[in-house]
Computed example of a mutant assay.
Amino acid sequence: MLSEQSAATVRATLPAVGAAIGEITDRFYARLFAAHPELLRNLFNRGNQASGAQKQALAGSIAAFAGHLVKHPDERPDVMLSRIAHKHASLGVAPEHYPVVHEHLFAAIAEVLGEAVTPEVAAAWDEVYWLMANALMAIEKRLYEESGTTARRPWEVVERVEETADVVTFRLRPADGGPVRDFRAGQYVSVQVELPDGARQIRQYSLSGAPGDGVRQFTVKRVQGADSAPDGEVSNHLHARVRVGDVLDLSEPYGDLVLDAGAETPLLLASAGIGVTPMVAMLADLAARGHGAPVAVVHGDRSPAEHALRADHELYAGKLPEAAVHFFYERDAEPGTRTGLVDLADVAVPAGTRAYLCGPLPFMRAVRAQLIDKGVAPADIHYEVFGPDLWLAQQAA
């Protein structure tokens, strides 16, 4: 992995690079999009660029990867790399993108750090970059081979279901009438739409239906902007414009937040808000497989009326012989549910439980801490972040 000489140089310069990484990523994206405006229109999420979320995530991934190499020069952080590679594959990232990123990233590093970037420093960080890039390209190549394509495919909307005032579910079949590749519960697809200004923006949505039924079903919450974050371009477009009979371009399924096939272990599926989507697919899969071990189903939401897919949530949980359902609502809680934020104090968590989390970062951090307090091993706690992985960025800070 990382050479001994480069490891020493990266270790010595990591604090300086880490302190400047925010400015470096600002310069990087400015240079990249000036040279390749089509990437911002048709590949990168313009909302995440405007809010700064993508810059923060990129900075976190670089710092986390470099820090791991310094501490463990003979190991790769495969969990982190797999997560990034799945995101890349769903977007159609190709090997030819990596030299372009390298060019503008290293130009940004030189601009920000100036004379501190000696030939030795440049060579060491070049080694870090290509170790990460080559590892990602290898994983992405395997993912493309497994899916059989790098392209998105046209799918026709055959049903649209208004789940709540701000959440809608779309069910689609291939527009060409061809076969449908199966997926693993918890995975997502990327959806590309053409916006009024001609940009072809891409967003990723968890598959919220049961695997194996020959359709793709995903559920979208309308994103309302706040502070520096803009309204969701694609989510609002889907809500306002997409109806039955329309055609959307979808990737093959990707994502590594998936259940272990056939493992009869206790599970805890915890979600909040629209994070319910992969959990409903997991419950549907568990019910179809006749999972017999205990399953704790935990969900938090603002109110019962805002709990998307609640009927499916309850239906699939009810088909599991050892499922216990715990719904928490900030207001308007009904009999059998609880008022307030998710609290695992009274939730049974048997030894050997594997936990899957999806929701806002504060929710997942709080649930993870409670699970660890209850004796769940950190390695058995898995999570999905919608959008850039800011949890990783915060851990690397």
Results as ranks from 00 to 15, higher is better:
M1G: 13
L2A: 06
L2K: 04
V10I: 13
V17C: 00
A19S: 13
A19W: 09
D26E: 13
F33P: 12
A34Y: 05
L40E: 14
L43M: 12
L43N: 11
Q49D: 07
S51T: 04
L58A: 01
G60K: 08
G60Y: 07
I62H: 01
A66G: 04
K71E: 14
H72C: 01
P73M: 11
D74F: 01
P77K: 05
S82Y: 03
R83D: 00
A85W: 11
A89M: 04
G92P: 08
E96R: 14
H97G: 08
Y98P: 04
A107R: 14
E115H: 03
A122H: 13
E127Q: 10
Y129L: 05
N134R: 15
A135M: 03
M137V: 14
E140K: 12
K141C: 05
L143C: 10
E145C: 09
T149S: 15
E156W: 03
E159I: 00
A165R: 14
V168I: 15
F170C: 01
P174G: 00
D176I: 00
D182Y: 00
F183Y: 15
L195K: 06
G198K: 10
Q204I: 01
G209H: 12
G209L: 11
G212S: 11
D213S: 09
V215E: 14
Q224W: 05
S228P: 02
A229L: 08
P230R: 04
G232F: 10
V242F: 05
V244N: 02
L250V: 07
E252A: 15
E252C: 05
Y254W: 12
D260L: 11
G262V: 08
G262P: 04
G275T: 05
T277P: 07
D285Y: 06
G292A: 14
G292C: 06
V297P: 09
H299Y: 11
A308F: 02
A311E: 15
A317F: 03
A323Q: 09
F328G: 01
Y329C: 07
R338I: 03
A345S: 14
P350N: 10
A351R: 11
Y356K: 10
L357A: 06
C358L: 02
P362N: 11
A366E: 09
R368M: 08
D373M: 03
P378T: 10
E384Y: 03
V385P: 02
G387R: 11
